[in-house]
Structure formats: structure tokens, C-alpha cells
Design a protein around this nucleic acid. Structure first.
Length: 475
RNA sequence: GGCCCCGUCGUCUAGUGGUCCAGGACGUCAGGUUCUCAUCCUGAAGAUCAGGGGUUCGACUCCCCUCGGGGUCACCA
């Protein structure tokens, strides 16, 4: 078997969304699975659509999710350069070979004339086929003129690693443009030359290319290139597709998720689960497991919707699986301004309490606010509380006073706090629903918080007692 | 419009002729875990396998038709 070499070859036309990225991830997985090579190539042959900075963006997506490329832009490799705009001579060379073999010719028409042909076909409700207007004596081609492939229409059957056996008739094969008048090759031509020169073994791309595959097959023959393994990836659809699951993808920028504090492990796990599974009931996969178990044959043929709820759940699973120190190291950029005054040890303890209720890091400020600053007294928390609203302010105050007396004696270790809180239950004859609720509210003024004893232990004696006193005065 | 691809719980999916009156996960709902939120545990609802015809002793699985969705028909990728 030939060495496995896969590539991801995006065009630098904007940010990368989850759908694009998954294609790259799968190509990466195939390479790693077979101990092969993963190439990151840039298809920048359309200068008009190019968006500055997208190459950096693309690379960052891979870097941030921990997917290294062995050859490609920035890192180089034996088949450099890996930007198509820097490989122009190569395309011209192959174009000349095709011209000399009588398999390519100059397109003598103006864009307007071609457009007229197209409209004609449209009016007749027929698909447009340039070859029906193939000129009899085309001028000799030279750079600056559009060059077309002289196709040889025929039936094709081919195997797609994902879609299975596919076929198409000669009616879909046409004389497409090889080299544009600006001297740049089209994707249709350039990717075939590059894949051949770079020894790419698996061409993994979106299923929108299925329709043009017969043309590529025809070109492979004209060039006498070996066919690579072909794999068409189904699309990822919008989550809120409702009835009109129309528009494809619509997914967010991959980096947006990273900015919101989703873990690379979870992103890779989740994206790979969109359209792939290993046939067992396993849901959580490490990158290593993915590498071992992945196969194109098990990729789904139908499109998948991007369900953020499921991503949230999965990210939570990964957050809970990390130890706190590791988690803290990764969460550094997500703490609120008010946390600046506190040291790493304190924030790590806070994070320890947040860990099991965090879905992604961007939630940290909202969930941890009361650990860093006194929240305003909000009497509604008391008045709207199902248990507390049955009691008068004086009764509640009396409970707090009793608690205050006991807590003043505490060393504020979680163990001692737990013991005292339990003793307070006996002493006041109250249910936890009442006693703990009022203490929790009086020390956090937050609608929710981690367990009372743990929260007080992290808050510490000074802050806890000070807030208790302030609340006593405010009630 | 031509050609091509797809169609199992709301969502991601298991399923390759019988072990499926269809299994798992997310989500939802209910209950439990000394307060809240979350975690964790238990349970429930949820898919006439898009519909209709065949083939077969037997079909989610094979064939045909219909419907629905998507892709493509660029000097874009």
C-alpha cells in the first residue's frame, strides 16, 4: 500500500467554520491512523475573494486544537511551496503538456459570449455545457488567455470511501477552465496537479465536489495520473434548521468556541462525533482513541446538525475530567477583573468549586462573582424564596445571629464548618432548607452557589463574617 | 429544469434479512442525594424506521415508485 498522505486545502477566503474544520480533522485523523503524513496546503488562486489574515486564522485553528501538520504552509516540506499562488510555473508546465497532447485549447470567446451561451441553455432548461460550443480552430494558447480542458465525455463509476459506489454519465463532463486569463489556475486544475506532485493518497473534501468528480476523473486520465482514494464528507447543518433544514452549515467560527473557553479535547471529540462513530456506545473519545478507531468507511452519508447543547455537555465532561491545577492553567484568560486582587491559590480553590457546574470558561465571571466582590443586597432573594418567605425578618435575623455566634468560633475549615452547620440545625430546630438558605443568601447574595460549607471555607472567616454582619443590618 | 447524493426518537446516532413491538447519548420531564445551582444515581416520555408498492417464511435492512431535503450545472473553491 502506498504511503498515506492526506491534505486539507482550504482557500483563504474568511474564517473557518466547524463544517470546514471537520473535513480537516478527518483528513488529519486518517493520516495519523495510518502513520502517514498530513499536509496543510493553501488554495489561494482566486485573488478577488482572498481575505487577508485567513491563512493565519486557518493555522491557528489547527494549532489551538492541537492538530499539527507535517508538511505545508509555514512548516515547509519536500514538495514546497504549499501555497498555490507560488506554484504557478508548475501549472503552466502541465498545461503545456495538455496543449501539446491536444487535450487543452484556448478559449476564444469573451466572457459575455460565454454568458450568452449559458443563458441560452438556461432558457432551454438545459444544463450549460461549454463543449457544445467548442471552437473548431482555437487560437494558439499563450498565458493571458483562458485555457480549457478538451474533455472526453464518458460514463464513470468510482468508489467513494464515504459515499460508496457512485456513478455519472457523460452529460456532466465538460470543457472546464484550466488556467484563467489572469494566469492563475482554477481549483479544478490546480488541486489535481498539486495532489499528484505532492503524492497525496486520499482526497478528502466536502460533498459539494461529488458533482465535479467525473471531470476530475477525466482529467486524471488525460494527464495519466493515478486516481487517489476519494472521500466526500457530508455537510454539517445549522442547529435550528427546523423544517427548512436548508442552508448548509451556518456554524460559527471555530475560534469563537476557543475564545468562549471550550476545551480542545472536547472540540475534537465533538466535531468528530458529527457524522462519525465507532459502532459502539462510547461517546467520549480522547484524541488518541480517535486516531486508533477512526475510519472513513464509518463516516455517515447524511448531514449532521450542530447541536450546541450536546457540545456543552461534552465540554462539561472534559472539564470535570481534568485536575484542578490543569484546569486553572487553562482558564487563566477567563477570570473577571475583580479576581485580579486574589492569588492563584484562592482562584484555584474557587475553580475547584466551579468545576462541576462549568460548561465553558466564559461562564466563570458570572458563576464566581461573589467570591471576589460583595454583591448588592437583593431582598428579593429572601422574599421570593419558597422556604424563607414564610418567616419574618426578625425570625431570620435571629437565625443569622445564632449562626454568627457559632461561626465566630470556627477555624473555617470545610470540616469544621460542616460540623457547626449541622449542630446549628439541632440548636435552632430548623430544616436545612431554611437555615442554610438564609446563611447562603446572606453571605453570597447570589441566586445560586456551590455547597454552603465549601463556599464559606473558600470565602474565609473575615469575608464571611463581615458579610453576615452587613446582611444582619440590611435585613 | 438536467445530473448526483441523502432520509431511524426534537438532536447526534446503533442497526448490512430473523436476537428490534428498534439500542445508546444529548435535551426534556419526574424522583433521590442535608439549602440553591450543578454533579451523580434512578425512572419516564419520545421513532407507525419519510410514504407506497414489491421480493422473501420473514425487511429498518434488498428492488421499484413517490415525497421531502441537499449538492451541482462559474475565468469560486
Amino acid at each position: 500500500m502506498k504511503p498515506v498522505r492526506t491534505r486539507f486545502a482550504p482557500s483563504p477566503t474568511g474564517f473557518m467554520h466547524v463544517g470546514n474544520f471537520r473535513t480537516g480533522l478527518f483528513a488529519w485523523l486518517v493520516a495519523r491512523h495510518y502513520g502517514g503524513t498530513f499536509i496543510l496546503r493553501l488554495e489561494d488562486t482566486d485573488k478577488k475573494r482572498e481575505v487577508e489574515g485567513s491563512d493565519e486564522h486557518i493555522m491557528k485553528c489547527f494549532e489551538v486544537l492541537g492538530l499539527a501538520w507535517d508538511e505545508g504552509i509555514k512548516v515547509g516540506g519536500p514538495y514546497a511551496p504549499y501555497r498555490q499562488s507560488e506554484r504557478l510555473e508548475s501549472y503552466i508546465d502541465w498545461a503545456r503538456i495538455l496543449v501539446d497532447a491536444g487535450r487543452a485549447y484556448a478559449d476564444p470567446y469573451t466572457p459575455e459570449e460565454v454568458e450568452a451561451f449559458r443563458e441560452e441553455a438556461q432558457a432551454a432548461k438545459k444544463p450549460f455545457l461549454y463543449r457544445e460550443h467548442r471552437p473548431e480552430n482555437p487560437p494558439k494558447w499563450k498565458p493571458g488567455m483562458p485555457l480549457r480542458f478538451k474533455s472526453d465525455p464518458k460514463n464513470y463509476e468510482w468508489h467513494d470511501a464515504v459515499m460508496g459506489d457512485l456513478h455519472a454519465g457523460p452529460e456532466v463532463i465538460d470543457d472546464f477552465i484550466l488556467i484563467k486569463s489572469d494566469g492563475f489556475p482554477t481549483y479544478n486544475f490546480a488541486h489535481i496537479i498539486d495532489d499528484h506532485e505532492m503524492q497525496v493518497s486520499h482526497v478528502i473534501r466536502g460533498q459539494e465536489f461529488i458533482a465535479s468528480t467525473p471531470n476530475y476523473l477525466n482529467l486524471y486520465e488525460a494527464l495519466d495520473f493515478e486516481r487517489p482514494v476519494l472521500a466526500a464528507m457530508p455537510h454539517i447543518l445549522k442547529a435550528d434548521g427546523k423544517k427548512k433544514m436548508g442552508k448548509r452549515d451556518g456554524a460559527k467560527d471555530v475560534l469563537d468556541y476557543f475564545r468562549d473557553g471550550f476545551l480542545p479535547e472536547a472540540m475534537v471529540n465533538f466535531i468528530s462525533s458529527l457524522g462519525w462513530n465507532d459502532g459502539t456506545e462510547q461517546e467520549i473519545f480522547t484524541k488518541q482513541e480517535l486516531i486508533e478507531k477512526f475510519s472513513l468507511e464509518r463516516v455517515q452519508r447524511s448531514g449532521a446538525r450542530f447541536d450546541e447543547d450536546r457540545l456543552h455537555w461534552m465540554n462539561g465532561v472534559w472539564i470535570r475530567s481534568l485536575n484542578v491545577d490543569e484546569l486553572y492553567a487553562r482558564s487563566r484568560n477567563f477570570w473577571p477583573k475583580s479576581a485580579d486582587a486574589y492569588d492563584d491559590a484562592y482562584k484555584t480553590r474557587v475553580l475547584g468549586l466551579l468545576q462541576e457546574r462549568l460548561k465553558y470558561f466564559a461562564e466563570i465571571p458570572a458563576l464566581s462573582a461573589f467570591f471576589f466582590e460583595d454583591l448588592p443586597v437583593d431582598l428579593e432573594l429572601v422574599d421570593k424564596n419558597k422556604q424563607l418567605k414564610k418567616y419574618s425578618r426578625d425570625e431570620l435575623k435571629s437565625l443569622l445571629t445564632t449562626a454568627q455566634a457559632s461561626l465566630e468560633q470556627s477555624d473555617f475549615s470545610a470540616a469544621d464548618l460542616t460540623e457547626r452547620l449541622n449542630a446549628l440545625l439541632d440548636q435552632t430546630g430548623q430544616k436545612p432548607g431554611v437555615l442554610f438558605s438564609i446563611i447562603r443568601i446572606a453571605t453570597t447574595w447570589s441566586p445560586s452557589s456551590p455547597g454552603l460549607a465549601d463556599t464559606l471555607a473558600v470565602l474565609g472567616k473575615d469575608i464571611s463574617l463581615r458579610r453576615l454582619q452587613a446582611s444582619l443590618e440590611a435585613l
